[in-house]
């Protein structure tokens, strides 16, 4: 056993072992490189690049999502403001329109009223005038009718008679 502490002293230095191990180690290196190391490291590198790509992509989409979110929020705020503006405008417009409609209606009503009053006055006047005309016409007609009656003989005779009787009485009583 002690012989092993004096390296190779017992039965010579086994150079063959050295060569054998060198050659077979190199062989093993090549075999493992071909069958395992190459594919595995390639796979690991692929995975590393895929993971970093995925991370980049995730980061990208995260920023995109947050910017979208901000934009959406802004648009929401804008639309709320807009909505408030629209409602306010509509209210103001409504108020204005109400005022206009009211004033127009009042004006119209005033015009109508004054027109009606005017018409009424006119009509009254017209009526009065026509009544006067009618009275005059009637008077004339009555007068003419009276006059025409005088002209008739009987009436005239009666009238004359009455008239004469009146006269006689007047004389006799006198």
């Amino acid at each position: 056993m002690l012989s092993h502490f004096v390296v190779g002293a017992a039965s010579g230095l086994y150079i063959g072992d050295l060569l054998f191990y060198l050659v077979s180690f190199i062989l093993l290196l090549l075999l493992i490189k071909h069958f395992a190391w190459g594919p595995v490291t390639k796979m690991m590198e692929n995975r590393a690049t895929k993971i970093s790509n995925d991370l980049d992509y995730a980061e990208d989409s995260r920023t995109k999502a947050s910017s979208l979110q901000a934009q959406r929020q802004k648009e929401l705020d804008n639309s709320q403001q807009e909505a408030t503006g629209i409602v306010n405008d509509a209210r103001q417009n409504g108020e204005k329109q109400r005022q206009t409609i009211l004033s127009t209606a009042q004006d119209e009503a005033g015009t109508l009223k004054s027109n009606a009053q005017k018409d009424i006055a006119q009509e009254r006047e017209d009526a009065l005038k026509s009544a006067q005309n009618d009275v005059a016409a009637l008077s004339i007609e009555i007068a003419s009718k009276i006059i025409q009656k005088e002209l008739k003989a009987d009436d005239q005779k009666a009238l004359i008679d009455s008239y004469i009787e009146g006269l006689g009485k007047q004389n006799g009583a006198r």
Partner: peptide, 27 residues
């Protein structure tokens, strides 16, 4: 003309074979 210690050769071959089979199986 080169001396080979057959113990080392056999043991070494076995170790190399085990390593290769192990790695081959795992991969």
């Amino acid at each position: 003309g080169i001396p080979f210690n057959i113990t080392n050769v056999i043991s070494g071959l076995a170790a190399f074979a085990i390593v290769f089979c192990l790695v081959y199986f795992l991969s």
